[in-house]
Amino acid sequence: MKKGGKGRTPRDNRGWRLLPVMALLLLFLAALARAYLFPGASAAGLAARVDASLAAGGVGSRVTAVLLNFRAYDTLLECFVLLLGVMVVWSLWRPDGAKSREPAAGAILASLERLLVPLMIMVGSYLLWAGSDRAGGAFQAGAILGGAGVLLLLDSSPLLKVFPKRGLVPGLCLGPLFFLSVGIAAMAWGGNFLEYRSPEASLIIIALEGAAAFSIGLCLAALFGGRPPERQAEDGRDQPSRNQGEFR
């Protein structure tokens, strides 16, 4: 294999390359400093409008109403960002890389898991529920669930077997897919994309949040695992005994 003239190595002109970046950072600093020193006439924001539409939105919390009704499309795309993150991480995984050392499964970690994981699942569910009228919501609940998953992944806990291996990818896709179908269903009912209003809205929002939180939690745990589940064709080569821990 001969070397075709490759691009110039990045080393020889690294200095001036940083200049535009530094200029940009200075701009950030100037912007923030100006905003701090001359706050000016602060505009009213949209709080009044949000409050006026809250009743039609279906939930008591302003934040949840914005995230899952007024600007639900943003949240839909955010769910895709997370799914995309998992795709990119998995696409970077190489089967022939060095086998990472398995950490020794300690007794402390195991008992900690038994104690914490149920608690985290409970707190996550509470946050999901509480999100409708105070702080909390799908992302926070998903993050706690993801934390529980990370804890289990730390020592490939046997508790992971509870989650079926084949369910991982569908589980990751559940949130985005459900979100999309709600949007399309709203159009089938003759409304706009993602249109839902007060009596049904609260139920739809809870369902959306549940699906989203589940997928977000799974996405975060899968990001930590970093490894795609083996496909059928490749199963013969790896030990089939390890369960979901295989994506760590």
Partner: peptide, 10 residues
């Protein structure tokens, strides 16, 4: 989207 007009919606 969601039949919310701007500036509230998108």
């Amino acid at each position: 989207l969601g039949a919310w007009r701007p500036p509230l919606g998108i």
